Computed example of a mutant assay.
Amino acid sequence: MKYELKDNKGKLLGIFIEREEDLWLLYTLLRKGDIVTMRTTRDVSIGEGEESRRIPMVLSIMVSTMEFQPFTNKLRIRGLIVEGPEEYGLRGHYHSFNVEPGSYIEVYREAGWTRRDIRRLEKYAVSTPRLLVISIDDDEIAVAEYSFLGLKIISSMSLPTMGKIYEVSMDERLGRLKEEINNILSIIQRGNYKTILLIGPSLWVEQFKELLEDQTRKMKIDLKIEMRPYGGLKGLKDVESSGLLHKLLGTTVLQSANQAIETALQRLSNNQRTVAIGLFEVKKAAEQKAIEKLVILDEYLSTFDSSQREEIEFILESADAHGGEIIIVPSTTNLAEKLRGLGGVVGLLRFELYEP
């Protein structure tokens, strides 16, 4: 993401979307009532009695709702039109923007963009690595991409099982695998991956490694091997839940979030009182300025519930104002399930809370 404050008052922010993670970041930043301006198209009637035509124009809408579907490369923003070509009489009508990589938008916030907003942009707008995972066993091969947003399944294919019942030889199986390698090489080239993780039972992993490693060596790709009890789609779920993927990815945000969640669980098991879980407890910790590290699900930051939003903003402002670290966890990651089990928000505290 590229961004720039466009005015001296710090109210207008220009944003260029470069990748899917930028859509997620924008989703967590926008609030109800923000004014978003973007070049779009809309059906309008040019003259009386004429059929409507879809024409390009620049519109500004006041945000009322948003919809972000991970791994679709699209963020949908809906709101009332507050500015547009006068000749079409569009003000007061609803319109939706489909924001995607390559889109440029401007966002006006009457209250202004805070230092916390800008720090969040600085922290999350940087390019993050992606990892290609190939999961194979005796009857299935599955390919997925792991990124900051979680695990996205790219493809899966059944493999012929060897044995007399199926009358499939090793040569026939190898032939199918060679066909699949061509598909995988195309995926690698499109995604510009630097690291590939090959997982599954040792027999099938070693077999596929022999077919793949010459190509990855030529492409200067780091091929990593991890023996797992399962391959295919089941193997992908297994390795994601193990925590190995975010360690290999090297994303400091996910690593910090995981460490904080593990620390919270450890403190809870030891009956330590320097941890707060759930919105009620964390708000109480914020009131006492006790939050040292805050881990929160992105769902809380994109809520349009005004009362809950007010509570969240208070917690964020308190943590930020007193030097606390704020970590936002995408709801699409495996870590999100752990965090939901703790109420969706966790605070590691500097000191025990006092009871009035």
Rank of each mutant, 00 (worst) to 15 (best):
K9D: 10
L13C: 13
L13S: 08
I15G: 11
I15P: 13
E21V: 07
E21N: 12
K32Y: 03
R42H: 12
S45R: 13
S45A: 03
I46Y: 02
I46M: 14
G49C: 06
G49I: 03
E51N: 11
E51T: 08
R53F: 11
R54T: 14
M57Y: 07
L59H: 04
I61A: 08
P70D: 04
L80F: 10
I81T: 02
E86M: 07
E87H: 11
G89A: 10
L90E: 09
F97Y: 08
N98H: 12
I105Y: 06
V107C: 09
Y108C: 08
E110M: 09
E110K: 15
G112H: 11
R120Y: 06
K123F: 07
R130Y: 06
A142E: 04
A142M: 05
K152Y: 03
M157G: 04
G163W: 10
I165E: 15
Y166T: 14
V168K: 15
I196A: 12
V205G: 09
V205F: 03
L212M: 11
L212S: 08
E213M: 13
Q215E: 13
T216H: 13
R217P: 01
M219F: 14
K224Y: 06
E226M: 09
M227Q: 05
Y230L: 11
L233K: 13
K234D: 03
K237W: 09
K237V: 09
V239Q: 03
E240M: 07
S242P: 07
N258H: 15
Q259L: 15
T263K: 15
R273T: 07
A276Q: 03
E281C: 00
E287R: 03
E292R: 14
V295G: 05
I296E: 00
Y300V: 02
R309S: 00
E317H: 06
A321F: 01
V329K: 03
V329E: 06
N334I: 12
K338F: 04
G347M: 01
L349M: 03
R350D: 13
E355H: 10
